[in-house]
């Protein structure tokens, strides 16, 4: 099983993600350069957080035109596992691998803090090790995390159980106050129809070691490794 972390110019959570996969989990992990045309036989490809191309046009808007993104698109179409974290999620939206777009946070400020997430769907390759309704404590760090999509798409997302994480309060209640960035339906993470592409604004790689105060992010990595190993959601 091999993991790849994509480096765009301006990625800045690339080393952090690599550290968790390689040193915390001990997995074979490589960096993938955005100008390359090969995913080097990776089974899991992660688009990390950061400010690709400075996010000067729109978050993730230029990174989607990187040469490697063609291969990524094909890999995803074939059912390959793709995880986009923060800026990586924004790239997936711009690529159209996930629906919707990100607006500025509702308070118009960059927001870095731990949030509570309600785990809404555990029948996915990325969440099968968690229990439904579990409350995760994971940090966010973004300026554009205010999720938006058209009403028809939103209905579909709900009907197909594709909303994986939602911002909630300490008791797991989905409230306006806990909706830190103003996202529609408190959406913090989404999965595609086939279940192999997950995008999430919170940073699981920042919550995978006890010394950093939370290990709740491990649910994502534990799940995807379990799925890749067994092919099962059970």
């Amino acid at each position: 099983m091999k993991c790849g972390v994509v480096i765009f110019p301006g990625s800045n959570c690339d080393f952090d993600t690599h550290h968790v996969l390689k040193n915390v989990y001990g997995r074979d992990t490589v960096f993938l350069w955005h100008k390359d045309h090969s995913l080097h036989n990776c089974d899991l490809v992660i688009l990390p957080g950061g400010f690709s191309y400075g996010d000067y046009l729109r978050s993730g808007a230029i990174a989607r035109f990187s040469p490697l993104m063609q291969e990524l698109q094909e890999f995803a179409d074939r059912g390959g596992m793709v995880l986009g974290i923060c800026n990586g999620f924004q790239v997936l939206l711009e690529l159209g691998l996930l629906p919707g777009a990100m607006l500025r946070n509702k308070n118009l400020k960059f927001l870095c803090r731990h949030v509570h997430l309600s785990l809404e769907n555990t029948a996915t390759p990325f969440t099968n090790r968690g229990e439904k309704g579990r409350i995760l404590h994971i940090p966010i760090a973004h300026f554009d995390g205010n999720y938006y999509t058209d009403p028809a798409t939103l209905i579909q997302l709900k009907q197909n159980n594709r909303i994986v994480f939602r911002y909630c309060d300490t008791d797991g209640k989905i409230t306006d106050e806990s909706n830190v960035n103003g996202s529609m339906e408190n959406i913090a993470g989404l999965i595609n129809k086939d279940g192999n592409v997950l995008g999430m604004m919170p940073h699981p790689e920042r919550a995978s070691e006890a010394i950093l105060g939370s290990e709740d992010g491990r649910v994502v990595f534990d799940s995807v490794f379990h799925y890749l190993k067994t092919g099962s959601l059970q």
Partner: peptide
Amino acid sequence: KVLANPII
């Protein structure tokens, strides 16, 4: 294609 995101 590039300058604007037609979704928003």
